[in-house]
Design a protein around this nucleic acid. Structure first.
Lengths: 339, 339
DNA sequence: CTGAAAGCGCTTACAG
DNA sequence: CTGAAAGCGCTTACAG
C-alpha cells in the first residue's frame, strides 16, 4: 500500500534523492560507488520510479496515445499489434484512446493532453484541422496514420492507396476484364476514397467504366447481400475490386452463391492482405498493405518531430504490393487478345 | 507549449486554486457563483486538469493497465475492442502493456505500478503467483481474464472452457461420431488445457478415445499442415474439436483438401465464434465465447475490488453456448441408432 | 463555502 | 561528483 519512493532508496543507500535520481537518468553523472549503493538499495526495496512524478516534472513522458475506432476489421488488430510492438521496443508506453461515439478523433486528441503524451497517433475518426492545430500549438505532436491533413506540424504516413487502386485496375484490365466494379464504403473513409480514386482513374484511362456499390454496414452479411445484388444482375461485372479483404471475401462468397466462377466469370481483388485472404478457401488476390513499413515510418516521424518540433510537416506514402493468388486470371482469355 | 494550469484558471476566475479544484471534483462544495466563474474561465482558457498531477496526489487514477500478448487470433481484437469500450463508458483510461518477449505477464504487471494504475487486467502470458502477490501487496488489484490463479486478492473471470469442451463432445457423440480428435496447442495455454479437459473427459465417459494433435505454430499454414496429416491417415477421425475457430477453419480446409466431406465424413467444432466462423465458406459449428459477459464480469470485479480491496478473491466462470451451423450433422446417421 | 499551507514523487538548475 | 532548494500541477486536510 505504501509506495517505495526515491527518498527511501536515498536513505538506505546513504545518499541524497538527487543522487538516486541521477543514477536512474541516462547520461547522468554519478560515481561508480554511488551507483552501486543506489542500485543495491533500489533492488532490495523493489524501487520503481513513479512515471507520474517523472512526467509531471520532466519534459518527456515516453507515453504515446493512440486514437483508434472500433476494431471491426482484422486489419485493425494487425496494425495495433505491430505498432504496440514497435513502441514497446522503443521503451514507449501506449495509451489507448478509444473512439467515443461522438467525436472519435477529437476527443482522443484531447485525452492525449491529459497525461502529457509525447505524441498522439491518430488512426481513426475524422480529424478537424482546428483540433489538430490546437494540439500542435499545445506542443503535442500529431501523427496521422492512414490519412493526411493539411495542417502545419501534422505528419502523416499511409499506404499508397491510389497506387494500390491502380495496381488492382491494371491487373484486372490486363487480364481481360471489361465490366469493372468497385465495392467499397461509398467514400466514407479516407482510404476508401483514395482506393476508389486510383482504381477508377486507371479504369477511365483504359476506357472502362466502373460500377460502384457502397456498403455502410461492416457486418459481413450486409456486404454479402450487397455483393449478391451486384452480381445477380443481368450483366454482372467480370472484374471487381473491393476496398478491403473482408469485403472482397464476401464478394467471393456472393459470386459462388449466385453460381459465378471465380476467377472464370469474375475476377476479384481485395486490399490489405490480411491472413484470411491467404486461406485455402479464398486464395484471394489482393493489394498488400505495408504495415511494417507504415509503422516504421510512424516511428521515424515520431523521432524526428520530437527532435525538432518546428520542422515542416511530412507525408510518407508507402508503396503497396500486388499479391496475385487465385481469384484473378493469369492473362486475358484468348479472344481478348484479338483486335 | 505552455500549459494552462489550475492557477491560471484561479487567477482569471478570481478565486483560489482550491476552489477551482473543487469545481472539478465530483461532490465537492462550491457555491453556484464560484462554479460559474470557474467554468467560464476554464472554458475560455481551454483548461484540462493534468491527470499526471491528479494521479500523483490523489488516491484513484482512473487508469487501468491491460497486459496482452501478440494479437495473432481474431478473437484477441474482439476482446480488446469490447473491453476498451466498456472502460471508456466508465470513464477509465486504458494503458496497453504489450507482452515483451521475455516475461509477458510479469513485466506488464510491473508497468502498471509505474503509472499507479487502479488495477491491472491480465489477458496474456503466464502469471507467477509471486508477482501477482507482489502487486496485490503493493495495493494494485489484479484481475485475470481467461485464466485463474490461486492467490489471495486476485480475481478471475473466464469462459467456462471445460463446459464448452463438454458441449462440443456431447454434440459430436450425440450425432454419431466414433473416432474423436482434438486439435489444440498441446496444453500450451490455460484455455487449451481446460477445453481439452472438458472434451476428453466427456468422451471418456462415453467410452470414446480422443486422438490429439498439438500445434505450436499459430500460422494457419502450419495448422493446415498438421490437420492434413491427421486427416490423411488410414482411419481419420470423424469428429474433431479444435481449440479455436482459426484452427477449426484450417481443419475444414484440410478435410476438403484430402477429399473428406464436412460434415458427412467428418464433423468439426470450433471455439470462440469469431465472425469468420459464420462466413458462407465455413458455416462453422462452434462454442460461443461470451465476450460481453466476460467483460461485464471484469467491470464488476473491478468495481467490487476497488470498493473493498480486502475482499476474498472471486472467480467468475461464464457459461458458453453451442452454436450449431453446418460443419456438424443434425443427428446420428441411421446405422448408429441400431444396437 | 473558501483560501493558505503542505505534500504527492520526482527532476532540474544551482552551489559547492 | 554531490546535496539543498525550488517547483511540476494538483488535492487534501485545516482554519476561517
Amino acid at each position: 500500500m505504501t509506495r517505495v519512493t526515491i527518498k527511501d532508496v536515498a536513505r538506505i543507500a546513504g545518499v541524497s534523492p538527487s543522487a538516486v535520481s541521477r543514477v536512474f537518468t541516462d547520461g547522468a553523472s554519478a560515481s561508480e560507488a554511488t551507483r552501486e549503493k543506489v542500485l543495491a538499495a533500489a533492488r532490495d526495496l523493489g524501487y520503481r520510479p513513479s512515471l507520474l512524478a517523472r512526467g509531471l516534472v520532466g519534459t518527456r513522458t515516453n507515453l504515446v496515445t493512440l486514437v483508434m475506432g472500433r476494431m471491426n476489421d482484422p486489419f485493425d488488430a494487425l496494425f495495433l499489434d505491430e505498432l504496440a510492438e514497435a513502441l514497446a521496443a522503443r521503451g514507449t508506453r501506449l495509451m489507448l484512446a478509444s473512439a467515443g461515439r461522438d467525436a472519435p478523433g477529437d476527443s482522443g486528441l484531447l485525452q492525449a493532453l491529459d497525461y502529457k503524451s509525447d505524441a498522439v497517433i491518430v488512426a481513426a475518426g475524422t480529424m478537424s484541422p482546428e483540433h489538430a492545430g490546437l494540439c500542435v500549438r499545445a506542443g503535442l505532436p500529431v501523427i496521422l496514420s492512414g490519412r493526411v491533413l493539411d495542417a502545419p506540424g501534422v505528419d502523416s504516413v499511409l499506404a499508397d492507396n491510389v497506387g494500390g487502386g491502380r495496381q488492382a485496375a491494371d491487373l484486372l484490365i490486363r487480364t481481360g476484364c471489361r465490366r469493372l466494379a468497385y465495392l467499397g464504403r461509398g467514400g466514407a473513409t479516407f482510404s476508401d476514397r483514395e482506393r476508389y480514386e486510383g482504381f477508377s482513374a486507371t479504369a477511365a484511362n483504359a476506357g472502362r467504366a466502373v460500377a460502384t456499390t457502397a456498403v455502410t454496414d461492416r457486418d459481413h452479411n450486409a456486404v454479402f447481400q450487397a455483393a449478391t445484388d451486384l452480381l445477380a444482375g443481368p450483366a454482372p461485372p467480370d472484374g471487381l475490386f473491393a476496398s478491403t479483404d473482408s469485403m472482397a471475401v464476401a464478394a467471393v462468397e456472393a459470386a459462388r452463391a449466385v453460381g459465378l466462377s471465380v476467377p472464370g466469370d469474375i475476377a476479384i481483388v481485395g486490399f490489405n492482405n490480411v491472413p484470411m485472404a491467404a486461406r485455402r478457401s479464398y486464395r484471394l488476390t489482393t493489394i498488400d498493405y505495408p504495415i511494417s513499413a507504415v509503422v516504421s515510418g510512424i516511428m521515424d516521424l515520431l523521432d524526428s518531430r520530437l527532435a525538432d518540433p518546428d520542422r515542416p510537416s511530412e507525408i510518407r506514402r508507402i508503396p503497396t504490393r500486388l499479391v496475385v493468388r487465385e481469384t484473378t486470371r493469369e492473362k486475358a482469355p484468348a479472344q481478348e487478345r484479338l483486335p
